[in-house]
């Protein structure tokens, strides 16, 4: 079964079971041991593979050498025959036969080494796949365990602070209300800023003798003087 499949089965059980079974320390230890064993097997297989591949190359060289030797000897035998040296040709033919036997032997060896190397490569591939699977299994078990324990801690903390006794809707309302309050405050302070800004400007204008405020006193005096003049008249 896949790792996710196993976790799904546990989740369908109970939360308690999830906390306990997946955290099965013994199971995790067994997997971890298997992972270590598989790593060792791979290391050994890789060393073996290097040796076998070296022998494979060696036998390939032997085959080449034997073939070249056979060709050379046959040429010599041919020359001997052409010079009617039958005995010599026979002697060379015996050497060719020896080389042929050697060639056959090396060809067989080469095929064996190639087969062996392929088997080792398959073994390494399979072991590496097994390691990945086990590592994933241990990883997921540990992650599930960690998340389970973390959520336990969080639930306890939420429970003790009482913060999540509130429903989601209440939380939302409170956050929204706070945002609205803040928006209101910002609008108010903007209005205030504006007002202060206007007043400050007016004060500056008055100080410079510009605007209604600056003219008021002068206008009053003018009016009074006009009345005084009228009274005199």
């Amino acid at each position: 079964m896949s790792v996710i499949g196993k976790i799904a089965t546990l989740i369908k059980g109970s939360a308690r079971e999830l906390g306990e079974s997946i955290v099965d320390a013994n199971g995790v230890r067994i997997y971890e041991q298997e992972i270590r064993d598989a790593h060792e097997a791979i290391t050994k297989a890789k060393t073996d593979l290097t040796g076998v591949m070296a022998k494979e190359m060696q036998s390939a060289r032997e085959i080449e050498r034997a073939r070249a030797e056979i060709a050379r000897l046959e040429n010599l035998a041919l020359e001997a025959l052409e010079k009617s040296k039958e005995d010599l040709a026979e002697e060379v033919a015996a050497k060719v036969a020896e080389q042929e036997a050697e060639l056959e032997k090396q060809t067989q060896l080469h095929a064996d080494y190639a087969l062996h190397a392929n088997r080792l490569k398959d073994l390494i591939k399979a072991s590496e796949a097994r390691i990945r699977e086990h590592e994933r299994e241990v990883q997921m078990a540990k992650t599930t365990e960690s998340v389970y324990k973390a959520t336990q801690t969080i639930s306890e903390s939420i429970g003790s602070s009482g913060s999540k006794l509130m429903s989601a809707k209440e939380s939302l309302e409170r956050i929204k209300k706070r945002h609205e309050d803040q928006a209101d405050r910002m609008t108010a302070s903007e209005a205030l800023d504006k007002e202060f800004g206007t007043k400050a400007l007016e004060a500056k204008l008055a100080a410079a003798g510009i605007g209604d405020d600056a003219q008021r006193k002068a206008k009053v005096m003018e009016r009074i003087r006009a009345r005084a003049a009228a009274d005199k008249a």
Binding site: K142, T143, S146
Partner: peptide
């Protein structure tokens, strides 16, 4: 401003 929606960070060996 979002006190009702705290975020919890937790770590396991892989995530």
């Amino acid at each position: 401003g979002r006190e009702e929606l705290p975020i919890f960070i937790t770590a396991s060996p892989d995530q």
